[in-house]
């Protein structure tokens, strides 16, 4: 008996969306990220696989957290990093996304990390440049590294992903995190339940891989292994999508009593930044069941893995 030779290679030019990745791709990224996370915890400097490479952070939308996370990840791997908050500069002068991309492309970077307020912005850019493009969040479409870091955090916390019941609650309609995380967890075998007020719960979430979509948070929480709360932008709570903040908190805020409906060992997550006292009680956010800071830690590890795979040259 001979065994068939098994060969896997990560075969993607860009990371624009979770859609298009296979469970094997995700496992590969998570394994690599895991080893980076362990190295960092052990105080070991990783191999400078990006030495001599130029990574450009191109953020058309303000974000300190994600931009720093990518910057730290790229530096740890030895890359030269340039961070450009474009929101403040050339776009104001009327330069378009494509013009900016073409200009940067001519400087021959090895990876472009792009955040843009328009869904599909990084995709459009990827058609015009020669280097790897990593989507750091586009409009209400995707935020793939967030989906991956959530998946890694869960895998590390629970030891596995398959069969877990995950409840994601908050502004599903406007959340790129909800889309990416739902798709990633679904691909890895989790059962994802989405929960939001009717006005923030779009139709067709089954095509993202969601097992259910409901407006009843209490019911959704029953037997949950993971409860992930999403940020709700305050302006959406003042009459346009919801009557008031206190009404939202009453039905969708995560309180101690409500959390008791989930499994006794249920873990609480939040992609940040949090509205304490509106979507989540401070005591829970800072409590021992919260892995919110580990999510931030895994963010750097996942971004190291993604940069390694996309900009590190094929091995």
């Amino acid at each position: 008996m001979t065994r068939a030779a098994y060969h896997y290679s990560f075969d993607h030019e860009h990371l624009l969306s979770i859609e298009g990745l296979s469970p094997l791709d995700i496992t590969h990224i998570l394994d690599l990220a895991d080893s980076y996370a362990e190295a960092t915890r052990a105080g070991i400097r990783p191999d400078p696989v990006l030495k001599g490479k130029v990574v450009v952070n191109l953020f058309f939308e303000n974000s300190t957290r994600t931009m720093s996370s990518f910057e730290i990840a790229a530096r740890r791997l030895g890359a030269d990093v340039i961070s450009m908050p474009v929101a403040a500069s050339s776009v104001k002068k009327g330069e378009t996304l494509i013009d900016t991309a073409m200009t940067l492309n001519a400087m021959r970077p090895d990876a472009l990390i792009v955040r843009h307020s328009a869904s599909g912005g990084p995709k459009l850019l990827s058609r015009k440049v020669d280097c790897a493009v990593i989507n750091a969040g586009d409009g209400t479409h995707q935020h793939p590294t967030q989906g991956l870091l959530d998946t890694l955090t869960i895998r590390r916390t629970k030891g596995h992903i398959e069969g877990l019941k995950v409840v994601i609650c908050g502004d599903i309609a406007h959340s790129r995190v909800a889309r990416s995380t739902t798709q990633a967890l679904h691909l890895m075998g989790a059962e994802v339940h989405l929960c939001a007020p009717r006005t923030l719960l779009p139709s067709g979430t089954e095509t993202w891989g969601a097992a259910s979509a409901t407006t009843d948070f209490d019911k959704a929480l029953k037997g949950a292994d993971i409860v992930m709360m999403l940020r709700l932008q305050l302006e959406r709570m003042d009459g346009a999508f919801l009557p008031s903040r206190r009404e939202y908190f009453r039905f969708f805020g995560l309180t101690q009593e409500r959390l008791a409906l989930a499994k006794p060992d249920a873990t609480v997550m939040h992609p940040g930044p949090m509205n304490r006292g509106i979507e989540i009680e401070s005591a829970i956010a800072d409590g021992d069941r919260s892995v919110i800071t580990e999510q931030v830690e895994m963010g750097v590890a996942v971004r190291e893995a993604v940069l390694h795979l996309l900009a590190g040259g094929r091995t």
Partner: peptide, 10 residues
């Protein structure tokens, strides 16, 4: 409007 627009974030 619909499932596709929702998934594409449009």
């Amino acid at each position: 409007s619909g499932e596709l627009a929702g998934r594409m974030g449009l």
